[in-house]
Nucleic acid binder design. Structure first.
Lengths: 237, 237
DNA sequence: CGGCGGGTTGATCACTGTCAAGACCGGTGG
DNA sequence: CCACCGGTCTTGACAGTGATCAACCCGCCG
C-alpha cells in the first residue's frame, strides 16, 4: 500500500526526467500531478484507446509495452508501432481530434494518462514545457522516419535485421557483452508491422541465425554479431 | 518589382493562414517577418539542406515541390517524402540538432526559411503559436503514419493506388468532375519512396489504367474511378 | 489426454526485381 | 524543318523471393 503510493507520485518516478514533468518547475509539479492519472493498469490485450473516437488524452508508458494498429476499410489490421517505457502515445491524433489508430497492451503494463486540454494550458504557462513538447514531437517524427526507412527495405531478412537494430537502440539491454532483446510482441505483430507474412518472419529469423548474427529462444533474441546484422540490414537483395 | 515586393510580405501571402503567422497577433507579425527569409528561390535539383549537418532552420514550401531523402551507410538513397505548398520541412531534425535527411527541389520552387532559435522564443511569448506548433507536428506525424501504412501494403499496384489517393488528398485539384493530379516527381522518386523498382511502378500504372481507375499522360494522372482505385488499394494480393 | 494458439518448416506458385531493349519526349544543332 | 541525342519512361523475358497452403512441433490449459 505504501509502495503503491510511492510509485504513484511523479516526483519519485524513474522516468520523470524523460517525461513531461521535466518541463515543469519542481515547485509547480503538483499542478501537473493534478491532471495526470498515473499508473493505470492494463492487462495483456487491453485497449488504451480505440481507433476513430474522440482523442483527448496522451499516455506515457511506464512499464510493459503496447502496440498501435490501424484497421483499414477492408478490415485487416496493420501494426504501426511498438511503445516501450518512456514512450508517449496519442501524439499523432491531437491535431485531428480523432484517434487514428487503436492502442493495445502487449503484456501486463502500466501507463499514465494525461488529459490534453489542461496540459495545453500548462504548456502555455511554462515555456520549458513548450520546448519539451516540440522536442518530444520532433523525436517522434524522427522515430517514424526510421520505421519508414525500415519498411522501404526490399529483402525480408534485411527488414527484420533493421527492425532488430532499431528495437535494440530503444531498449539498450546489455548483459555479458551480449545484446539481449526481449521481443514482447508476437510474430504476427512483427509480420504486420514489417508488412511481410508470419512465415517469412520465421524464415528470416532462421536466416539471421544461420548467418551467425543472432541466437534466439522464443521471444528472447541475442545479438551476437552486430556488424554482421548491420551488414544484412543494408543488403539490397 | 512591385509584384515581387508584394509576395515577399507574409501579410499578403495566400498560405499565411495555414502557416506560422496564423499563430501570431497581426500587430506583432512584423517580429515574425524579421526572422523569416521569405521566397528563397530554388531551381530543380537544388538542395535546401544536406543530411548530417547542423539543423537550424525550418522551411515552408511556398510554390513548387520538394523531396527529402536519406542516404544509408551503403550509399543508396531512399525518398522519405514529398512536400507541397504549405508543408513544413525540417521538423524531424530539431530534437537531435542534426539533419536526418537531405531536401531537394523537384522543380523550380520558392520556400521561406525560418531560423529555429528565435522562432522558439516567439513560441514562448505567443501561446497560440505554441498550440500551432503542436498542431503542425501532430499533423506531420499523422501524415507519416499514412505513408507508413502505404509502405506496409504488399502488392505494388495497391501501394501505388494508395500513394495516388494520399497525394490527391493533399492537393485536391479537381477539374470537370475528374480528378487531375500532377505528379511532379520522377518515376524513380516514386519507386524509391514506395520501396519498389522503377519498372514495377510503370507496370502498376498500366494495371491501374487497364482496371479503368486512371488515365495518364506523362506525369499528369487523371483519376476517373475513385471507388475502383480505393478497391485496388485495399486488395491484399 | 486432447484441444488450442503460437511458432517453425516444407512445397508450390504468383509477383516483383533484374537485365535488356525499345518507345517517347524535349532540346540542341545542322 | 529535320536529324540526332540524352534522359525518362515503358515493355518484355527470366530468375529469385516471398505469399500461400499445409503439416508439424511445442507449451499451456482444461
Amino acid at each position: 500500500m505504501l509502495e503503491k503510493k510511492i510509485i504513484t507520485d511523479c516526483t519519485s518516478c524513474a522516468l520523470a526526467k524523460r517525461c513531461l514533468p521535466s518541463g515543469i518547475p519542481v515547485t509547480d509539479l503538483y499542478r501537473f500531478i493534478n491532471i495526470a492519472h498515473t499508473n493505470q493498469t492494463f492487462a495483456s490485450g487491453d485497449q488504451l484507446f480505440k481507433q476513430g473516437v474522440k482523442a483527448s488524452h496522451l499516455y506515457v508508458v511506464k512499464t510493459g509495452s503496447f502496440k498501435t494498429q490501424i484497421i483499414n476499410d477492408f478490415g485487416d489490421a496493420h501494426v504501426n508501432g511498438f511503445y516501450l517505457p518512456g514512450d508517449i502515445l496519442g501524439l499523432e491524433s491531437m491535431a485531428g481530434g480523432i484517434t487514428l489508430n487503436s492502442c493495445i497492451a502487449i503484456e501486463d503494463s502500466l501507463a499514465c494518462k494525461i488529459t490534453y486540454r489542461p496540459l495545453a494550458a500548462l504548456r502555455k504557462e511554462f515555456p520549458n514545457l513548450s520546448d519539451l513538447a516540440v522536442k518530444i514531437y520532433s523525436q517522434a517524427l524522427a522515430t517514424t522516419l526510421e520505421t519508414q526507412n525500415c519498411l522501404s527495405i526490399h529483402s525480408a531478412a534485411a527488414r527484420l535485421a533493421q527492425f532488430l537494430i532499431l528495437f535494440h537502440r530503444r531498449t539498450n539491454q546489455v548483459t555479458y557483452r551480449q545484446i539481449r532483446l526481449h521481443l514482447n510482441m508476437s510474430r504476427q505483430d512483427i509480420a504486420s508491422h514489417l508488412g511481410i507474412a508470419v512465415e517469412t518472419v520465421s524464415r528470416s529469423f532462421s536466416k539471421l541465425i544461420d548467418a551467425g548474427c543472432i541466437t534466439k529462444s522464443g521471444r528472447i533474441i541475442n545479438i551476437i554479431n552486430t556488424e554482421a546484422l548491420e551488414e544484412i540490414s543494408r543488403s539490397t537483395a
